[in-house]
Each structure stands twice: as C-alpha cells, then as structure tokens.
Simulated assay, not measured.
Amino acid sequence: MWNSPAEFFAMGGYALYVWCSFGVCLLVMLVEPISIRIRRKAIIQRLQQEHLAEQFDKEGRQ
C-alpha cells in the first residue's frame, strides 16, 4: 500500500527496475508492429519482383 504518489512512484525502493521494465515493454509493444509492417512490405515487394521475373522469363522462351 502506498500513502502518497511519491511512495507509489518510488515502488518501495525498486522504482528503477519497475519503471525501466515498463518502459522496455512499452518500447517493444510499439516497435514490434512497425517492424512487422516493414518486413511484410519487403516480402510483398520481393514476391512481386519474382512474379515479374517469371513472366519475363516465360515470354523470353516463347
């Protein structure tokens, strides 16, 4: 139990560990969706390039 906001933010002497943990968790939760979106775009672009290369290759064989 905390009697004041200062005691709450001090977290019983473990404030550095607690708030850094929350900060790292928040950072990961923000960065992960952005990273996934970037990787997804790169994969789609690579697949489109491969598809175009296959079409070009098929047209060259005819």
Rank of each mutant, 00 (worst) to 15 (best):
F22R: 09
E32P: 04
S4I: 06
K58Y: 12
G23A: 06
F9V: 12
Y17H: 13
I38A: 01
W19F: 00
G13S: 03
Y17C: 07
R46E: 12
L30F: 15
M29G: 14
R61N: 01
S21M: 09
P5N: 07
I43M: 04
A10S: 15
M29F: 12
V31R: 13
C25P: 07
H51A: 11
Y17L: 15
G60D: 14
Q55A: 05
E54I: 02
M11Q: 07
Q55G: 01
V28F: 11
F22E: 12
V31S: 05
L30W: 12
L30M: 15
H51M: 09
Q48F: 05
I36W: 07
Q48W: 01
V31N: 04
L26P: 07
L47E: 11
L47P: 03
H51Y: 12
Y14D: 15
L16P: 02
K41C: 04
I43W: 02
E59D: 13
K58I: 14
Q49T: 08
I43V: 04
Q62I: 15
V28H: 05
R39A: 04
N3R: 11
K41F: 01
A42T: 01
A10I: 07
Y14R: 13
S35K: 13
L16G: 11
Y14F: 15
Q45I: 07
I34G: 02
A42C: 01
L47C: 08
A6Q: 11
H51N: 12
P5A: 04
I44R: 05
R39N: 08
H51L: 08
F9C: 10
A53Y: 00
I36V: 12
Q62N: 14
M29A: 12
Q48L: 04
F9Y: 13
W19Q: 02
P5E: 03
E54M: 03
F8Y: 02
L26S: 10
K58A: 14
R40H: 08
R46Q: 14
N3A: 09
G13T: 00
F8H: 03
C20Y: 11
E7R: 02
L26D: 13
Q48Y: 02
W2T: 11
V31E: 03
G60I: 08
G60F: 06
S21C: 09
L27A: 14
L26R: 14
P5D: 06
V18I: 07
L27E: 09
Q55F: 00
S21D: 08
R40Q: 11
I44L: 03
A15M: 08
F22Q: 14
R37V: 04
L16K: 09
G13Y: 00
L47Y: 01
W19M: 07
C25A: 15
L52H: 10
S4M: 02
A10Q: 07
I44F: 00
N3S: 10
F22W: 14
I44V: 06
I44S: 01
A15R: 06
E7L: 03
L30Q: 15
F9T: 11
S21P: 05
C25T: 15
F56D: 13
I44C: 03
